[in-house]
Amino acid sequence: MSAVVEPPAADAGAAPFCAWCGGARAEGDHAACERRLATVDPPRHCPVCARRMVVQVDPVGWTARCSRHGESAGTNGFA
Rank of each mutant, 00 (worst) to 15 (best):
E71T: 15
R52Q: 11
R25Y: 02
A24Q: 15
H30K: 07
A3Y: 07
R65T: 15
T63A: 01
E71S: 15
H69Q: 07
A9W: 07
S67C: 06
C66N: 03
V54A: 13
P47N: 15
R52K: 10
R36S: 10
A64Y: 04
G74K: 02
E6T: 05
E6L: 09
G23E: 15
G13P: 03
A64V: 09
P59E: 11
R65W: 05
A15C: 05
F17E: 02
W62A: 08
H45P: 02
V40W: 06
A50E: 06
R65P: 01
V60R: 07
V60E: 13
A38Q: 06
V60M: 04
E27F: 04
R35N: 14
V54L: 11
D41W: 13
C49N: 00
A9Y: 08
S2Y: 03
V5F: 06
H30P: 13
T39E: 15
C21F: 01
V4C: 00
A79K: 08
C21R: 02
E34Y: 02
P16L: 04
H69V: 10
H45A: 07
C33V: 14
N76K: 02
R51K: 02
E71I: 14
M1K: 08
A50V: 02
A79G: 11
E71V: 13
G13C: 05
S2L: 09
H69R: 12
A12I: 10
W20C: 10
A24E: 15
V57Q: 15
F17W: 06
V57G: 00
H45Y: 05
G61F: 00
T39H: 12
R65H: 13
V4L: 11
E71D: 11
G28F: 11
V40Y: 09
V5D: 13
N76Q: 09
D29F: 06
A79P: 07
R52A: 09
M53T: 02
T63K: 03
G77Q: 05
R25E: 15
A64F: 03
V4Y: 00
A15H: 00
G70W: 05
C49I: 03
V48H: 04
A15L: 01
T39K: 05
A14P: 04
P7F: 09
A24R: 14
R25K: 10
N76E: 13
A10P: 12
W20A: 14
D41N: 05
E6K: 12
E27N: 09
L37K: 02
G23L: 07
G77R: 06
P8Q: 08
T75Q: 10
C21S: 01
A12C: 05
A79Y: 08
P7W: 03
P43C: 09
V48P: 00
D11S: 12
